[in-house]
Amino acid sequence: MPDNSSDEEKNKSIALIASILFILAFAILMYLFFNKFLFNTNIPELREGHRDEDYCRMVKNYIDTNGKEGWRDYRGIYYKDCLK
């Protein structure tokens, strides 16, 4: 009569190892995703002290066209940061 308990224990061990490897791989992929896309400091709005030239240009366009084109100064920084 074969020993089914040792086969069952072996299968449980393999399943546990596979689960741990899957969770580890998933965690590494999530870290890489968040590091690449969410914590990227090359985004101008996230860099401290960076003047966003596109923002300033669009707000100036809004002012020059009396609100018909461009963006309103939704950040409230145009007169402080853009007119230096």
Rank of each mutant, 00 (worst) to 15 (best):
M1H: 08
P2G: 04
D3P: 05
S5T: 09
S5A: 13
S6Y: 11
S6T: 13
D7M: 14
D7G: 14
E8N: 14
E8W: 10
E9T: 09
K10V: 02
N11G: 03
N11P: 00
K12S: 09
K12N: 11
K12T: 04
I14V: 13
I14D: 06
A15T: 06
A15Y: 07
A15R: 13
I17A: 14
I17L: 15
I17V: 14
A18H: 02
I20R: 04
I20H: 01
I20Q: 05
I20D: 00
I20S: 06
L21A: 15
L21K: 05
L21P: 00
F22V: 08
F22E: 02
I23T: 11
I23K: 02
L24R: 01
L24Q: 02
L24T: 15
A25K: 03
F26G: 10
F26Y: 13
A27C: 10
A27E: 02
I28C: 11
L29R: 06
L29C: 11
L29K: 07
M30F: 13
M30K: 05
Y31D: 04
Y31R: 06
Y31E: 03
F33P: 00
F33E: 03
N35R: 12
N35Y: 13
K36D: 06
K36T: 15
F37G: 01
F37Q: 09
F39P: 00
F39H: 09
F39R: 08
F39W: 15
F39A: 08
N40A: 02
T41M: 12
N42V: 01
N42M: 07
N42H: 13
I43S: 04
I43F: 12
I43L: 09
P44S: 09
E45F: 12
E45Y: 13
R47A: 14
E48T: 11
E48P: 01
E48D: 11
G49V: 03
G49S: 05
H50I: 03
H50R: 12
R51W: 00
D52Y: 00
E53C: 02
E53L: 14
E53T: 12
D54K: 05
D54A: 09
D54L: 12
D54I: 09
D54Q: 07
Y55Q: 06
C56P: 06
C56L: 07
C56H: 06
C56T: 07
R57K: 10
M58E: 15
M58F: 12
M58N: 13
M58S: 12
V59K: 01
N61C: 04
N61M: 12
Y62N: 14
I63F: 00
D64L: 10
D64V: 03
D64S: 12
T65N: 08
T65R: 03
T65F: 10
T65V: 07
N66Q: 10
G67L: 05
E69C: 00
E69N: 11
E69G: 00
G70W: 07
W71H: 09
R72N: 08
D73G: 08
D73V: 07
D73C: 10
R75P: 01
G76M: 06
I77F: 06
I77S: 09
Y78S: 05
Y78C: 04
Y78M: 05
Y79V: 01
K80I: 05
K80G: 03
D81W: 12
